[in-house]
């Protein structure tokens, strides 16, 4: 972790500073059996302001997960610098199902708190809030295998929110869900973000999802992934994930991003 969070600045300076600064980030994997080097991420630079909601879109295999895992300190970078200006380590919502099957819904949500010796009463209160926030109140004592895919993702989101970290990293959290469930969860995520003011980096391969959620969209090229565009999304907040589709600009931007993704060389 120490390599990632290189500096935690005093509170007075934080206002002026971005929450995340990534510059010239490069990551390669080495497969010793095939003696093969895979360049996953190449020379990526971007920054995220405090309280900003940024989406990264790109084709699968372009290194989105790798970037996020490096931000989370779960992966070593090869070169470049990554600075997180936050008092707490970032919380992660993983791409694949990550709910612990041996714990109930409540216990899963409480997991980060339970590791830090937080009192039972405080844990219970936080879990109750998270259950309400994510619409899981009826499922508090359910086991993960009794839940639908959408419910499990809600649990993962609740777990990432429970200890109130400043930065939230989300790796295609709704990627495996059906369209309706996804819309519902997107709307809820926006509501939660609007009330908590967290800094969010959200990965998706869906242009539609990126435009629905983000203040800014970073577009990545196919592997080795590098940033090919940085678009500001103009829609006002709070957003209605269905209504905003009546806005012509939504479709203009969709077209623009698709054009970038379809032919990175043109950008």
């Amino acid at each position: 972790m120490a390599t990632v969070q290189e500096a935690v600045r005093p509170a007075a300076m934080q206002q002026a500073q971005p929450a995340i600064e990534v510059s010239h980030l490069t990551k390669a994997f080495y497969d010793s059996e095939g003696d093969r080097v895979t360049l996953a991420v190449s020379d990526v630079s971007f920054s995220v302001a405090r309280g900003e909601f940024v989406c990264i879109v790109g084709p699968s295999g372009c290194g989105k997960t790798t970037v996020l895992r490096i931000l989370a300190g779960l992966e070593e970078k090869l070169s470049g610098t990554v600075k997180l200006h936050s008092a707490t380590p970032p919380a992660m919502v993983f791409q694949e199902a990550s709910v612990l099957p041996w714990l109930t819904v409540s216990e899963n949500i409480a997991f980060p708190l339970s590791l830090k010796g937080v009192s039972r009463a405080r844990q219970d209160a936080r879990v109750r809030d998270m259950l309400a926030l994510t619409g899981l109140a009826e499922f508090a004592t359910a086991r993960p295998h009794q839940l639908s895919g959408g419910m499990k993702q809600r649990v993962s989101v609740a777990r990432a929110l429970v200890d109130d970290r400043e930065i939230l990293l989300m790796d295609e959290p709704f990627g495996a869900l059906d369209e309706q469930t996804r819309l519902v969860l997107q709307q809820e995520l926006l509501r939660i973000w609007e009330t908590t003011g967290k800094t969010v980096v959200f990965i998706t391969h869906s242009v539609d999802e990126a435009l629905t959620l983000a203040d800014r969209v970073l577009v990545m090229s196919p592997r080795p992934g590098t940033l090919i565009s940085n678009l500001t999304v103009p829609f006002e907040r709070p957003r209605d994930v269905v209504e905003m589709r009546r806005d012509k600009r939504f479709w203009d931007m969709t077209y623009e991003v698709w054009r970038l993704l379809a032919s990175p060389a043109r950008a």
Binding site: A72, G73, L74, P89, A91, M92, F94, E96, A97, S98, L100, W102, F111, P112, S114, L115, K116, R159
Partner: peptide, 25 residues
């Protein structure tokens, strides 16, 4: 691996990973 990553992201110590993740898994 994902369960190990969850523990690490949640701030688990080595012993906590041992007791809360490896053992039940």
């Amino acid at each position: 691996q994902i369960y190990m990553d969850v523990a690490r992201n949640a701030g688990a110590t080595r012993f906590q990973t041992f007791r809360r993740i490896a053992f039940p898994a």
